[in-house]
């Protein structure tokens, strides 16, 4: 009888962890890579990037990825799509507007974030409908 017990499931644990990781990012605590996007530095945690993006998975998964401190991503008109994606990784919220959706779509395609790509397609498609 003494072995019987309960599992206590903290239902908001994943969002609490993600929220703390986002705060660590904003404060630059334990961030271990700088993404250069059009010359603009974005600090992040490799562990979060690799968990969210197929592109980062292929970059960081091997031993060679440990030594990558700075990573240049494509600049140009697509560059403004990267910051919303980084925010999404750390918050689960994807900010889209008709003006930014094409850039976010391009960045998500580059980063191999298929589900975000699909969400962008749905958003763009819906914005064309009357």
């Amino acid at each position: 009888e003494g072995a019987l017990g309960y599992v206590r499931e903290f239902t908001r644990h994943s969002s609490d962890v993600l929220g703390n990781l986002n705060e660590l990012r904003l404060r630059g605590i334990l961030t271990d890579v700088t993404l250069l996007v059009g010359g603009q530095p974005l600090r992040a945690h490799k562990a979060v990037l690799i968990a969210c993006s197929g592109f980062f998975y292929s970059i960081f998964r091997g031993r060679a990825g440990v030594g990558v401190d700075v990573l240049s991503l494509p600049g140009g008109p697509e560059a403004r799509g990267f910051a919303p994606l980084l925010d999404f990784m750390y918050t689960s919220r994807l900010r889209l507007s008709p003006a930014t959706a094409p850039a976010v779509l391009a960045a998500a395609t580059y980063l191999q974030m298929e589900h975000v790509v699909q969400a962008c397609h749905r958003f763009i498609q819906a914005s064309y409908e009357p």
């Binding site: 019987l4 309960y6 499931e9 239902t11 609490d16 962890v17």
Partner: peptide, 22 residues
């Protein structure tokens, strides 16, 4: 299931909150 008889949901915060950047 190793003596587990029930799952109890905890709706409150699960970990400490890192202070927000000022």
């Amino acid at each position: 299931h190793e003596g587990v008889v029930a799952t109890v949901k905890e709706a409150g915060r699960s970990i400490h909150e890192i202070p927000r950047e000022e």
